[in-house]
Structures are given as structure tokens and as C-alpha cells.
């Protein structure tokens, strides 16, 4: 970056006349971060998500070396105390440690679903929007059909057919979660392809693929990411629901939904077994909802 001597960093970031594309992008990011930090709800959401990431990475350390799967049958269903901060479950496993390690499963599922869903949605949406004609009609019809389907039930049926497990739960959720992204990407593409710079690229002889990947996809990304953040809570709740029904992570893996399910039988006497992992799910999805709302306010002020 070329910082002129009379300029401070904040002036360089906030200038109305950026001299390079990189400066413009940096300035845009800077303004977005500032408006998120200025919005207390969005900031709270961001902090919760950063905490989730930190907990997932530092789980062994934060759990004070207690294994999430070590059974201690003498200490079954032990109430919370100093040795077991959140009590123990029906096999005497430490719920505090299991809750921390559960963050890893949740984070992994969320990341995997995003990595699958965004490319599929972008591919279907941009192709439909850019090529138009019958390809557009066919792709959008398929999207509509998936969109019309109740999400959890479809994910349930997929997960039941594929068999239980984290990977299959991720596939099942992804199969039901991509349509909104295709819709958004298509809408953006239709607008973008009418712009002059796309015609200019075409006249210079750019191939369809080049235009799609180099010009259209990058411009669709920001609205797709906002939508993804808003969807995250739903994805987490669906994943936890599948786990609760026994279709997600399999024992002895610590997964929040499955942990709540394990506490069902003893809810009336040992409330902590089911309650604490549920609070974890709630906090994390609240975090994504708060951040998503904030991001939408920043990037798309119209829809609030």
C-alpha cells in the first residue's frame, strides 16, 4: 500500500478517492467493521461467535484436561459442584468438558455446510441468471421444488436414508439449504449481467466462464455471505435437531443436540443434563442471529 506522508492510516482508509482497487476494498471493509462495532447487538453476536471459535480450539485446555468421553460410573448424574462445574451425565461423563468439546462438532458442521452450500447455490444461481432461457427455467424450477419442501423433514428423510452420522447429517442439511443462495445469486446475476462492464468484457472476447468466475461471482458474494450468517442459526438448530433425534453425531462424540436428548429421561430429577447443552445451542444461534441482523443492516439497509 502506498501511504502518502501527510496521510494517517484512517485518512487513507476513509478517502473518497481511492487510488487503487485494493485501497477501495480496504476502505469498504473498514467502514463495514466500524458500523458493526457501532451496533451493540451485532457486536455482541460477533463476540459470541469469536468465543465459540476460541472454545472449539481451546477445548482441551479449558476443560482442565478432563476427557469428554471418560466414563465414571460411580459418579453418575452428579449435580454441579466444584469438581464437575456442570455436573455429570448418565455415564458419569463431565458435562462441562462435553459442552466445550461440543463446540467443535457444531463449528465443524457449520463450516462444512457453508463450504458445500455456497458453491452449489452460486453455481446454480449464476448459471441460471447469466445463461437465461430454458436453462434458467429448469434450474429455477428445481430450486423452487426444494424451497417448497419443509427443511427439517427433508433433512430427516435424507439422513434416515443415508444412515446416521455427522457427515450424512451435513449432506442432508446441505441438500436442503442451498436453494435460497441460488435464488439470491440469480437475482444478483440478472442485474449485473445488464451492466456495461459485462458487455465490455464480452466485447474484449472474455469467455462465459471467465465472466462468470472473474466478474459475476465476486459481486454476488457479499449478499450470499449476509444470507449465510442469517441462515447459520437455522442450520445449527437443524443440526441439533438431527442430533437430538439420534441422526447426527454418534456416541460417544459430544454433540449438543444428542446431549439434550440424553437428558430427556432424567429431566425431572437431574435438570442439568439436558438444560446446559441446550443453553449452549441457544447462545450460539442467538450470536449468529444478532450478527446476521447487523450485517444485513450494514450491507442492505433497504430490507430492514
Amino acid at each position: 500500500m502506498i501511504l502518502q506522508q501527510s496521510q494517517t492510516l484512517s485518512q487513507w482508509l476513509q478517502t473518497d478517492a481511492p487510488v487503487s482497487a485494493r485501497q477501495a476494498a480496504a476502505g469498504k471493509t473498514y467502514r463495514a467493521i466500524r458500523s458493526i462495532v457501532a451496533n451493540p447487538a451485532a457486536l455482541a453476536g460477533l463476540i459470541i461467535i469469536l468465543l465459540l471459535i476460541a472454545v472449539a480450539f481451546l477445548a482441551p485446555f479449558l476443560a482442565r484436561g478432563i476427557s469428554p468421553i471418560a466414563q465414571d460410573l460411580d459418579n453418575r448424574l452428579h449435580a454441579p459442584d466444584l469438581a464437575h462445574w456442570f455436573g455429570t451425565d448418565e455415564l458419569g461423563r463431565d458435562i462441562y468438558s462435553r459442552t466445550l468439546y461440543g463446540a467443535r462438532v457444531t463449528l465443524a458442521m457449520v463450516l462444512l455446510v457453508s463450504v458445500i452450500v455456497v458453491p452449489i447455490g452460486l453455481a446454480v444461481g449464476t448459471l441460471a441468471g447469466f445463461l437465461g432461457g430454458w436453462i434458467d427455467s429448469v434450474l429455477m424450477r428445481i430450486t423452487d421444488i426444494f424451497l417448497a419442501f419443509p427443511r427439517l423433514v427433508l433433512a430427516l428423510a435424507f439422513a434416515a436414508a443415508l444412515g446416521p452420522g455427522i457427515e450424512n447429517a451435513v449432506i442432508a442439511i446441505s441438500l436442503t439449504a442451498w436453494p435460497p443462495y441460488a435464488r439470491i445469486a440469480r437475482a444478483e446475476t440478472v442485474t449485473i449481467s445488464k451492466s456495461d462492464f459485462i458487455s465490455a468484457a464480452k466485447m474484449q472476447g472474455a469467455s462465459t466462464w471467465r465472466i462468470l468466475f472473474k466478474h459475476i461471482v465476486p459481486l454476488c458474494l457479499s449478499s450470499v455471505i449476509v444470507r449465510l450468517t442469517l441462515d447459520m442459526a437455522g442450520i445449527i438448530l437443524t443440526a441439533a435437531g438431527l442430533g437430538f433425534l439420534g441422526l447426527g453425531a454418534q456416541p460417544p462424540t459430544a454433540e449438543w443436540g444428542a446431549m439434550v436428548s440424553a437428558g430427556r429421561e432424567v429431566i425431572l430429577d437431574q435438570w442439568w443434563v439436558a438444560t446446559i447443552p441446550g443453553v449452549a445451542i441457544f447462545i450460539v444461534s442467538l450470536g449468529f442471529n444478532l450478527l446476521g441482523d447487523g450485517l444485513r443492516d450494514v450491507f442492505d439497509p433497504k430490507s430492514t
Binding site: 438448530l237 435437531g241 439434550v260 439436558a274 441457544f282
Partner: peptide, 9 residues
């Protein structure tokens, strides 16, 4: 944000 099955319990 609340998981429905948890709120039920």
C-alpha cells in the same frame, strides 16, 4: 434462536 426440543423439555 431457541431449540424447540429444548424449550419443550
Amino acid at each position: 434462536s431457541i431449540p424447540v426440543f429444548w424449550l419443550g423439555l
